[in-house]
Nucleic acid binder design. Structure first.
Length: 404
RNA sequence: GCGUAGGUGGCGGAGUGGUCAAUCGCAACUGACUGUAAAUCAGUCGCCCAUUGGGCUACGGAGGUUCGAAUCCUCCCCUGCGCACCA
């Protein structure tokens, strides 16, 4: 890639950047160490993190060295950015667990590329309150800080903004300074909601080290239908195969709005812009081809080629009515004994959490066994010769029920 | 602390003694149509049992009045706004 910034811009991955003209040439002439921070609030990344992870990969491909910061300390504090309410604070044990899980996952996705993992708890925890105030308090001006949009919004909201959260910007700025000092890290990237926090770090380095540090943000990725990125019928779409199977992950991308396909191909896949241009020309039902590629490429990036192939096969088979041969179809083992009522089965599989809901769904004709509508709430499921039955909810949710 | 406006189902927001499991909008789910898309139309949308139907828990919390409360009273908790210092 001759110029990584040009590439990123063309893909719609740049929201804001520092050093308008200079950054492009710096990123093409020099090899920088850069970092992005992630929130350790769960033990897996989700689709909402994917754009940033992909962007880090692109930068790594272009020869820059990634640092993945998992915000142990900031996780203890809770980030108010883009949140309407204060976030839960995590216990240290949970943080440790999440840190380990996220690290492992990130490594796997980056597939052998060099990544350094850091936890800001390591350098922030040594401070006591007075020390921290003394060291960094004088470097930040409150009247500057409250101009920050995320804070301003919170100041107007009825929930208010706690002092704890207000400190988040300072912590993040100190992180950048620390990584600059320790690893010569000179670029920070993040979501556009982090712009204020990121800039605070850039400023801090400029003032305290008389050195230029850079930053850019990627836009908040939205869906045309206004839905939040990374939500499906079944809830959040995780990058962890145990939380969201590769099949479900694949399905998520198949089901994106037509209008989003081109944009998502640019953001989330490594196809060349020329190839994407061609795909964008598709119209009507043909768009499905582009969706298949989008789904396959993203699944491959996250879960690897083999699992992506399996997911693809399961998807095409199921929706072509070819049944559930593939391993990739989500499955569950259930003992039905002499026969199990369909409502109880739905509860047992945890597809539905209340009997009332299960009944309503059956009555509206939304439950199928091997592609046949379940006739009524009294239906009894019994063992068959295949040893399994394909349970379907609505059009898209499949579960292979294996009798044992 | 004082004054004032509020706290209702995932969200917004009606209701102000019985006909309220609670109008309506959004979101969600299902069906029809389709391309596993969108749009549109129809249905569902507290929980549990049931054949029409019934029971239980709910309108910030705890008590009370009443045959009967989301609706009235008392106390408490929480939030916004104004005042409380300069004007």
């Amino acid at each position: 890639m001759s110029n990584i910034m040009t590439e990123l811009e063309a893909r719609g991955l740049i929201a804001q950047k520092t050093h308008e003209d200079k950054l492009d040439s710096i990123l093409s002439d020099e090899k920088l160490t850069f970092y992005a921070g992630f929130d350790p609030s769960a033990d897996s990344f989700h689709v909402g993190n994917l754009a940033l992870i992909v962007t880090m990969t692109r930068l790594a491909e272009a020869g820059h060295s990634p640092i993945c910061l998992i915000g142990g300390a900031t996780g203890l504090v809770g980030d108010p950015s883009g949140k309407t309410e204060m976030r839960k604070m995590l216990s240290e044990e949970d943080l440790k667990h999440n840190f380990d899980a996220l690290t492992l996952q990130f490594k796997k996705i980056l597939a052998g590329r060099e990544v350094r993992f850091v936890n800001n708890l390591d350098w922030l925890k040594k401070f006591n309150y007075l020390e921290f105030l003394r060291s960094y308090g004088p470097l930040f001006k409150v009247n500057e800080m409250i101009k920050n949009e995320t804070y301003r919004e919170r100041l107007e909201k009825e929930y208010g903004l706690t002092f704890l959260e207000f400190n988040y910007l300072i912590l993040q700025a100190v992180d950048y300074l620390h990584l600059f000092d320790t690893y010569k890290c000179r670029l920070q990237i993040g979501g556009s909601d982090q712009w204020g926090n990121i800039l605070a770090g850039v400023e801090l380095i400029r003032r305290e080290r008389q050195t230029e540090a850079y930053a850019f943000t990627i836009p908040l990725i939205t869906r045309s239908d206004g839905k939040k990125m990374g939500k499906s019928e079944a809830g959040a779409v995780w990058l962890d195969a145990d939380k969201t199977s590769p099949f479900e992950f694949y399905q998520y991308w198949i089901n994106v709005d037509d209008k989003d396909v081109g944009r998502f191909l640019k953001i989330f896949t490594f196809l060349s812009l020329e190839e994407i241009d061609e795909l964008e020309k598709l119209e009507g039902a043909e768009i499905k081809k582009a969706k298949n590629i989008l789904a396959f490429e993203t699944t491959k990036f996250v879960h690897g080629e083999d699992l992506a192939e399996e997911a693809k096969k399961a998807s095409t088979d199921l929706f072509a009515g070819k049944g559930a041969d593939s391993e990739a179809v989500p499955s569950i083992e259930v003992s039905v004994g002499e026969g199990l009522n369909i409502v109880d089965l739905l509860i047992k599989t945890e597809l539905i959490d209340s009997k009332t809901k299960a009944r309503n769904l059956i009555e509206s004709g939304g439950v199928y066994l091997n592609d046949e509508v379940v006739s009524g709430v009294d239906f009894i499921v019994t063992k068959n010769n295949d040893g399994f039955v394909l349970l379907r909810l609505g059009k898209k949710r499949y579960l292979k029920v294996i009798f044992n």
